[in-house]
Each structure stands twice: as C-alpha cells, then as structure tokens.
Amino acid sequence: MAGPQVQLVVTCLVDAMTPQVGRATVSALERSGCRVSFPEGQTCCGQPAMNTGHTEQAREMAAHMLDVLDATTGPVVVPSGSCAEMMIHHYPRLFEGTEREDQARRVAARVRELTQFLVDDVGTHIRASSDGARIVYHYSCHGLRGLGLDRTADRLLYGVERLPLDGDRECCGFGGLFSIEMPPVSAAIMDAKLDRIEASEAEMLVGGDVSCLLHLQGGLRRRGSPVAVKHIAELLGDGE
C-alpha cells in the first residue's frame, strides 16, 4: 500500500545554502514509504521578519506561504524545528482576528517537523546512520521547547554511537539576525558551545535545524576543527 502523500517545505536556508539536506529529506521520506510533492512557489516562512519586529512583513510572507500550501492537501513536512514551530504556533497568532485566521489554523494543523512526522505519524522503520562516526546532537531551541523534538530525534538516533554533550539543551547563540546584530554576544555563546562540542570528542555534530548548524559549522571551521556537521536528515537519507 502506498504511504502518505506529503508536501515538502524545505525552508529558505536549505533551498539556497544546503540543498543536500533537502535531497536527504526527500530520500528519508521516501525510504519511510511516503510520496513527496514539492509545492512550487514556496519561499520563506517569514520568521526572520517576525523576530526583528517587522511583523507586517512577516505577515506578508506568511500569507504567501499559506496560499501556496492551502492549495495542496496532506501533511506539510519541514526539516526544521524552528520554521515548523513558526508555522504551527505563530501563523495562527499572527492572523488572529483577521480573515486569514481560519486558513492559518487549517495549514498550521497540517505542518509537521521532519523527525516528528517520521516517528509519530509514519512510525518509520528507518534509523539514522553516521557511518561509524561518533556524534553529539544539538537540540535547537524552538523545536525543543516549542515542539518537544528531543524525543523524536532521540528515537531516530537509536543505534548511532552518540556521546553526551554537556548543555545540549542550551541555546547555541544563533538567534537569527541576533547573530549579526549582536556579534560579540552571539559569538561568546557559540564559543562556549563549541568548547563543549570539542571536549566531547565527537567526530560529528548533528542537529535538526540548518540555521543553528550553519552558525556552529562556521564557528568550527573558523577554529580549524575537524568535527563534521550534518543535519539529521542526512543521517536518515541519501542527499547525493
């Protein structure tokens, strides 16, 4: 029997910066028996604008995404806890009391973060593989506190050699445009995180949000650290 038909939202960062994560997401979904569609016209969920206080522009972007997604059916799967949380929790809030409120609620109810969807909705049989690398996992904040993604990530990572990471529930200091607006503060928080990652003796850092991972990867690279950085989708599917 064919698995569920899903609508993939790859996020703006994956689309432009790490398309291999998008391809790995498709592969992970297909290996789990899903059929994947990619709604044309998708762009950005609008979170950057919401977080800087440009709420009206966030609404414009959100409205565009709502129109794109409302023309489709089935679960909307996002390989990012942060963007998924934006769509699930903030879309209904941003349009509260407007004529788009119903639409926002309708679409929000369909949105799932990737690991959440694979574990809770599909009950996937696939498990992550790091090709023998010892990993540490960073729980990104929005997915962790907003969606409870520690449980689903842990489930998928069962079987991978995973080392403890001190402070793995603490913010990495990225914070979206915070990383550009408050560089020394963001960098200091990041450095503390990188110290712990390096002290763990892991060979690979894995997470569920490309945004935080780009920040940490950029910092590790600047240090000359050999630690590899991967999105969890890349441990679940083939992104080549």
């Binding site: 910066m17 560089p183 963001s186």
Partner: peptide
C-alpha cells in the same frame, strides 16, 4: 557581524 567569528558557506 557574521564573519567576525564564523565562516559562511557560499550559496549553493
């Protein structure tokens, strides 16, 4: 502000 302490991959 970004590149003060981190590298950035080039857009794909």
């Amino acid at each position: 502000g970004w590149t003060a302490s981190r590298d950035l991959p080039r857009p794909a």
